[in-house]
Amino acid sequence: MENSDEVTTQGSTVEDWTRALAQSTGSPGGGAGAGLMLSLAAALTSMVAGYTEAEGHERGALDRIRERARSLRNDALELADQDSSASRAFGAAFHLEPGPERDAAISRASLNAAKASAVLGKRAMDAIEDLAWLAANGNPALVADVVVAFGALRATVGGARTNVSFDLASLTSGGNTMEQIREEHPALWAMVGDLNAATERIDALTAKIDRRAAPTDAI
């Protein structure tokens, strides 16, 4: 098997990548897993769009959804690998000898990790409305696939939200208070709230089509 440092979402088999994820190395870790889930959501979005027919201006909207999904599928894999790199730096910082150098390294790694998760979360939020369009207008035979895609998207959003929050809190190791961190990194701090709102949006969209996707629950 490949060394976990060499495993990438784009260059490894699913078997090798998940085996590396199962190891106690942290790289890849949960953030990279969230990136992989985003890629799955994008792939399912593209698939459902491909099975959907539309006319007039809706045809153009559908084509754009599929093109964005195709691009996101690949971008999400790259973001997953970037998160793995950030995780390695984070882990290396914690293995340094206690002292100012270690504290500074942890702060740098924490901030970089938070930024990486924020980018991933932003891309996931941008994908919600395309999937919402398919939930309302997509091929009804694939509604279950839309629900699965929403689930993968929710996992990405939830993972990004938690990682940004955790990484921001890790900045306290350098002596800063949470209030200082909020003042110094307002965009990252606000991202946590944005991702919470995105989770609620996904849940509402999923609930709206759940009766169609799982009709046996209504009996």
Rank of each mutant, 00 (worst) to 15 (best):
E101L: 12
V48P: 02
E55I: 06
I106V: 15
R70L: 15
Q180E: 15
D83C: 10
W17P: 03
A93Q: 03
A198E: 01
S39K: 07
A42Y: 08
N74P: 00
D203A: 14
T206E: 14
P98G: 02
G29Q: 04
A41C: 09
E184I: 03
R161P: 00
L44K: 06
M47W: 08
A80Q: 10
L62M: 03
D194V: 03
D203M: 08
R212Y: 11
E179G: 04
T216Q: 13
D167F: 11
Q82H: 14
F166P: 00
A42M: 10
R59S: 14
V192I: 11
L36K: 06
G151L: 03
R154C: 05
N112G: 14
A89W: 00
T206R: 13
G11N: 15
A32D: 05
M125Y: 00
A187F: 06
A43D: 13
E67L: 13
T9Y: 08
D130I: 03
S170H: 07
A132P: 00
E67R: 15
K122M: 10
T206C: 08
G193S: 05
T25G: 15
A169F: 07
A207Q: 12
G158E: 06
W17S: 01
D16E: 15
H57I: 11
R212D: 12
V48H: 00
F166E: 05
G174R: 11
P98L: 01
M125H: 04
R66C: 12
A144L: 08
L44E: 08
F150S: 01
T9N: 07
P98W: 01
E129L: 07
K122V: 12
R154E: 11
I65K: 04
N176H: 14
P100I: 10
Q180Y: 02
G50C: 05
I65G: 07
S165V: 00
R64N: 13
G121Y: 00
L36R: 09
N137R: 10
L153T: 05
A80I: 10
G35T: 06
R123L: 12
R161C: 07
V164M: 05
V148L: 11
G31S: 07
Y51V: 08
N112M: 09
G175C: 03
A92S: 14
M47Q: 11
I65T: 12
R161K: 12
R123Y: 12
A104K: 13
I128H: 04
A116V: 15
E55H: 09
G35E: 05
S85I: 14
A152Y: 07
T206H: 08
V48Q: 02
M1A: 13
N196R: 12
L79F: 12
G29D: 01
L40G: 09
